[in-house]
């Protein structure tokens, strides 16, 4: 009997970790979607994605601290701040630089990252600031399992957003153009689609997604530091690469896998191994299966292109 009870308790721990992982992973998935959309339309990497969200969140926190803004105002300001920063990054690092200069764009987005960090520090010179909690708090019990209310909100918002993004991509003219540019920006141009306009709009879309994801993550943690930018960029990148680039379901699955790996290793091996495990899994995934877990990756697309010619 005792052994059985012990086994049951272990099972409960494991499942509880999976639940927590999925909740956090949902937000990672949103970040990965942001990366995958931008990488799709531009074939360039925007390292400043995370820092833009960080700066947006700093605007939100600033409003919270100085103007005592309500949670929904903080959400709105975080999103607006992210969008404005996103536009700044797009104009300076991508629109202004030749389309084929991929490394230059990436390095430029890194240089702007340094700028955004410093702007955040000038705005709020302390390192760590409280971030207002969500409208809801507490949690729900499902049998032996416990789910934090913030996590539940994160999951629900993520599901809604993924459905919305899917509809936008597959049911609207903008989505058609965005996908066409992702597949071949040259061919899209011949169809009368303007790739730089689509890129610009994609940046706004992605900043919206990122702003929401950033808010969800920070309102769960209830604090923000300038390191949040770095954290977001790398969580998003890892989740995108795990799932395989260029696919929305891949991004979500990558996010969930990353979330589960992190919570499980944190539980069983301790905090020190939490980040380590993500990198080990990513490295192995890249070396063993470069196309990502869900394989509509670039590698496969290139294969397709070779077979075609």
């Amino acid at each position: 009997m005792a052994i059985e009870r012990e086994l049951f308790a272990k099972m409960v721990d494991f499942v509880q970790n999976c639940i927590d992982g999925i909740m956090i992973g949902a937000a990672y998935g949103l970040l990965a979607i942001g990366f995958t959309i931008i990488f799709g339309v531009m074939r360039r990497l925007n390292l400043s994605f995370g820092p833009s969200i960080m700066l947006g969140a700093f605007f939100g926190t600033w409003a919270f601290l100085t103007l005592n803004a309500a949670p929904w105002m903080v959400l709105a300001i975080t999103i607006a701040g992210t969008v404005i920063t996103g536009i700044y990054v797009e104009r300076l690092c991508f629109w202004a630089i030749r389309r084929d200069a991929t490394i230059a764009s990436m390095v430029s987005s890194f240089a702007i990252w340094m700028q955004l960090d410093e702007v955040a520090i000038l705005m709020l010179p302390g390192r760590t600031y409280p971030f207002p909690e969500m409208f809801v708090s507490g949690g729900l019990n499902f049998g032996p399992f416990f789910v934090r209310a913030e996590h539940l909100v994160t999951l629900l918002v993520t599901i809604l957003m993924v459905v919305g993004i899917r509809l936008l991509l597959y049911r609207t003219t903008f989505g058609l153009a965005l996908r066409a540019v992702s597949e071949s920006s040259d061919a899209a141009k011949y169809m009368g689609i303007n790739p730089s306009r689509i890129t610009f709009l994609a940046f706004i879309l992605v900043s919206l997604i990122g702003g929401v994801a950033g808010y969800l993550l920070l309102a769960t943690d209830q604090q923000v530091t300038p390191y949040f930018g770095l954290w977001v960029t790398f969580k998003g990148l890892i989740a995108m690469m795990l799932g395989g680039m260029g696919s929305i379901p891949g991004a979500i699955i990558g996010g969930l896998v990353l979330g589960i790996i992190e919570t499980q290793t944190q539980w069983y091996l301790g905090n020190a191994f939490k980040d380590m495990s993500a990198y080990v899994v990513l490295f192995l995934a890249l070396v063993l299966r470069p196309g990502g877990l869900l394989g509509q990756g670039i590698a496969e697309r290139q294969d397709l292109a070779f077979r075609r010619v």
């Binding site: 764009s105 240089a111 990252w113 340094m114 700028q115």
Partner: peptide, 12 residues
Amino acid sequence: MIAFGGLVAVLL
């Protein structure tokens, strides 16, 4: 960093 970042971005 604002100066350096801006300088690099414009240079590129």
